[in-house]
Design a protein around this nucleic acid. Structure first.
Lengths: 324, 324
DNA sequence: GTGAAAGCGCTAACAG
DNA sequence: CTGTTAGCGCTTTCAC
């Protein structure tokens, strides 16, 4: 591997001179003849700065730790892609670690600490696990100690209920895991109550691929008890439900309306295009990075919590309820 | 950030002693009293080694560059997850960069060079772009200069044709992008010829979310010309096709059989569970890493190319053709 | 304009 | 067993 020393030797200058021309930013001025020569030699020797050495002395890595759960749900895969784009645009590197359980989260943060990341973006809700002293932004849940962007479920589900009731629906079910999606279940029940509706909740084992049993449970209900509209905790749950319904020859939206959450790409290409609500991923990741970089520049500014309320996007999976 | 110097100071020993007990591997012996003390202080001061400094001197980073296209297709997301697991099991870090176009590939490799990754796993087929001197394994396509794991399309499609013809199908279409999936199109045509079948090819703009138009083109064909079986270039294409068929009230598999490729999780939960073929991701990533580590240990061993032939998994989207 | 020198945090070789 | 030392590749300050 070519080093600055090698270049300096060939060009008959000092390492400092090489550093100065290769990085631009320096008090040091180099004659343009030497400058060209250095540049040429660097190119010819296929020089790449050793970022480890650079970071060691500059005390920053220009690397952001991006810690997310494994992208087994398309939503995170899309988020990931948006982050990568943002990183590249800002000329920063990403230090990605993906977890599948709680132990992995700790592992991810430890790796980041060892790697001396300049900042962290994470979707894990427990701020106390975060390495101390590293600027961080938490995505998904509201925090008091750390900057966060959180889903405002009360407002989101107020809109959902408004939409569904405007379509005439009064028998509404929520399909989602009670454990990991408890806050959603609570919020939608609350939103329902305000419209005088008791939202029934159907827990399902996995949020990723909702267990068919939960969908089937709902679909096996006698017609008089069956909800006329189902709210999935996310698009994947909603999509799985639609597929379960379709394979039982229950039509969507004619027999039952379905609404999701996240607006993953798949929802657009589903057997029946899914009505859902989704973030503008580009904008959100921009905002996330803006916030993080502001925090990095000024570590003691007041903590912020930013509510996110994704826009409803109407497609084909919901329709007005006809009176029987 | 706590350094070894800090610990050494508190414990009244040298940095070398601290290094010795914290890393274990050293000629240096430390009295177990001192050892305990050092360990205690390190824990109490929340010490984390600076991996940059460590790598600078040890001349290895224990980091593998993982360079993949953006996981907008679930297959890569699943691959990614398998890699992360493998990395963790081997106590290595991942240097992930995801690309969306060719320029990004170069960027990814440059980042890896700067970061001094010990090895590379990539799914980009152009070996000439790889940084020289860094052990690498290419996933997906056969290479002559670099270790590779490639899909043996001839054998894969031989099996597909065998399967489909055993079901009685003779009118078969391939749904896939000609540009990026050209080798597949060629292979399936060849496999068809051996069975005396002319496979028709329907190109579609994107391999990611096959353009509905392509699916619709096929579905609009007069019944006499319509294929009885469709092979998707991947599961996503096959799934999109199924959804397009379903929404036109064309039944799968009764009216038309569909087979995919990749065996992504989604295929199991589709409206009609997809017959497909898929890699054992855990095994493949193990093999990939084994190969890479072998190459890292012995850079001049002969180059290998390993064929991959995923197992067919029969589900509900294919059925025997009845004679009319 | 240029070059010498210090030092980032760590490891490893070697002398006590 | 322990401590000292050199140096990884780089940036930056300061004297020339």
């Amino acid at each position: 591997m070519t080093t600055m020393q090698d270049i300096a030797g060939k060009a008959n200058v000092s390492r400092a001179a090489v550093s100065a021309v290769l990085n631009g930013n320096s008090q040091i001025r180099v004659s343009s003849k030497k400058r060209e020569e250095i540049l040429a030699i660097a190119r010819q020797m296929n020089y790449r700065p050793n970022l480890l050495a650079r970071s060691l002395v500059s005390r920053n890595t220009r690397t952001i730790g991006i810690y997310l759960c494994a992208p087994t749900d398309m939503f995170y895969a899309e988020m990931l892609t948006a982050f990568q784009r943002e990183l590249k645009a800002r000329n920063y590197a990403g230090h990605f670690v993906f977890w599948e359980n709680l132990a992995d989260v700790q592992y991810a943060y430890d790796m980041g600490r060892g790697q001396r990341v300049d900042g962290i973006i994470t979707c894990h809700g427990d701020a106390s696990m975060l390495p101390a002293g590293v600027p961080a932004v938490i995505f998904g849940t509201k925090q008091s100690e750390v900057d966060s962007f959180f889903f405002d479920w009360d407002e989101i589900y107020r809109r959902y209920m408004e939409y569904l009731t405007s379509l005439g629906h009064r028998k509404i079910a929520f399909l989602g895991d009670e454990k990991t999606r408890g806050y959603q279940a609570v919020a939608i029940k609350k939103a329902g109550e305000k419209s005088g509706i008791s939202v029934m909740t159907v827990p399902c084992k996995s949020i990723r691929r909702m267990s068919l049993p939960a969908a089937n449970e709902l679909l096996s209900l006698p017609l008089s008890e069956r909800p006329t509209a189902v709210v999935g905790c996310n698009d994947v749950a909603a999509l799985t439900f639609i597929n379960a319904a379709l394979s039982r020859h229950i039509r969507v939206p004619e027999d039952i309306s379905v609404i999701g959450f996240d607006n993953i790409e798949e929802s657009l290409y589903s057997a029946v295009p899914l009505t859902t609500a989704g973030l503008d991923l580009k904008k959100v990741s921009e905002d996330l990075f803006d916030r993080l970089f502001a925090r990095m520049a000024q570590p003691d500014m007041p903590v912020t919590a930013t509510a996110m309320v994704p826009e409803l996007v109407e497609r084909a999976s919901c329709m007005p309820l006809y009176d029987d």
